[in-house]
Simulated scan of single mutants.
Amino acid sequence: MALTDPNILEMPTSSESGAMPWYPHIVDWVEAELEDLSDDQLDFHDTSPEKEWMWWSCRRQVSHIAWDALVFSKRRAGHLLWPDGDVPDPINWTEHQMGPHNKWDRVLDTTLFWQIPDILGHLRLGIDWLTTLVEDHSIDLLRSETQTVRGTAFWKYVITTLPRGAHTDDPQGSSITYDLEGSLWMVFYEMLSHVRSIQRLKLHQGLQTAIELPRVGYLRLPHYWGDTDDNGPGMTRL
């Protein structure tokens, strides 16, 4: 089974250890940053075109993290989690998948999951699925599971944080191939970057952050730590 260790926060440069993310950190970090926030503080946001990182409030940030944990697990590794096809339905999958039927724009159904305890319950479930993936499967199997997708400027940018597990197939980055080792580290970094966005929203409101996040993965890039407020590369297909 793949190695997991709470002290390993970034994909090791060497492939020998095969270490995978410690996903429970995400729940701990989110809960710490949301503690004692009022509804006004949770819902503060700014939809100005030049302030993309502020478009989603703290509430929507954590809803997206929960969405990501659930949808990624099913879409990318459902065949490993539920080999008999007995996929649970904590959300309406059709309405929450990427694509033309996506009703909720990468967050949980806001009519059902608006209160923070409800969102956190779904986050914990998704984190449990991700933890099962890395604890119940070998690193060799994770590396053997590959997928090629149409690239975006965002993906071309963020895969530069990985020492392996993802690469562009052409100079333009219009095609990107991942293995599941790389994808699982990317989803950890993705969720971590949204925890950082929660911190930035709090700081913008004059609030203190609760924890010191590790500057690893996507947070090494200036757009996601907050070294710049400029909009990062977009999700338009290349």
Rank of each mutant, 00 (worst) to 15 (best):
A32M: 08
E33H: 10
E33I: 14
E33V: 04
E35T: 12
E35K: 15
D36E: 15
D36M: 12
D36L: 03
D36R: 13
L37T: 10
S38L: 07
S38M: 07
S38G: 04
D39M: 10
Q41C: 03
H45E: 13
D46Q: 07
T47Q: 12
T47V: 11
T47A: 12
T47Y: 01
S48R: 14
P49A: 11
E50R: 09
E52F: 03
W53N: 02
W53L: 08
W53T: 05
W53H: 11
W55V: 05
W56C: 03
S57G: 08
C58A: 14
R60Y: 14
Q61M: 13
V62M: 09
V62I: 15
V62S: 00
S63P: 14
H64L: 02
H64A: 08
I65S: 04
A66T: 03
W67Q: 02
D68T: 15
D68C: 13
D68E: 09
D68F: 09
L70R: 00
L70S: 07
L70D: 01
F72Q: 02
F72N: 06
S73P: 00
R75D: 14
R76M: 14
A77Q: 01
A77S: 15
G78I: 08
H79G: 03
L80V: 12
L81D: 04
P83S: 04
D84C: 09
G85L: 11
D86M: 14
V87C: 09
V87D: 13
P90L: 04
P90R: 07
P90F: 08
I91R: 00
I91T: 00
I91P: 02
I91G: 00
N92A: 13
W93Y: 07
W93P: 06
T94I: 14
T94C: 01
E95P: 00
E95F: 09
E95K: 08
M98S: 08
M98A: 11
M98L: 10
G99M: 10
G99Q: 05
G99Y: 11
G99W: 06
G99F: 03
P100K: 09
H101N: 15
H101Y: 12
H101M: 10
H101L: 13
N102Q: 14
K103H: 02
K103W: 02
R106G: 00
R106K: 06
L108R: 09
L108T: 02
L108W: 08
D109N: 15
T110Q: 12
T110H: 04
T111R: 12
T111M: 02
L112N: 06
L112M: 11
W114L: 01
W114K: 13
W114V: 06
W114Y: 13
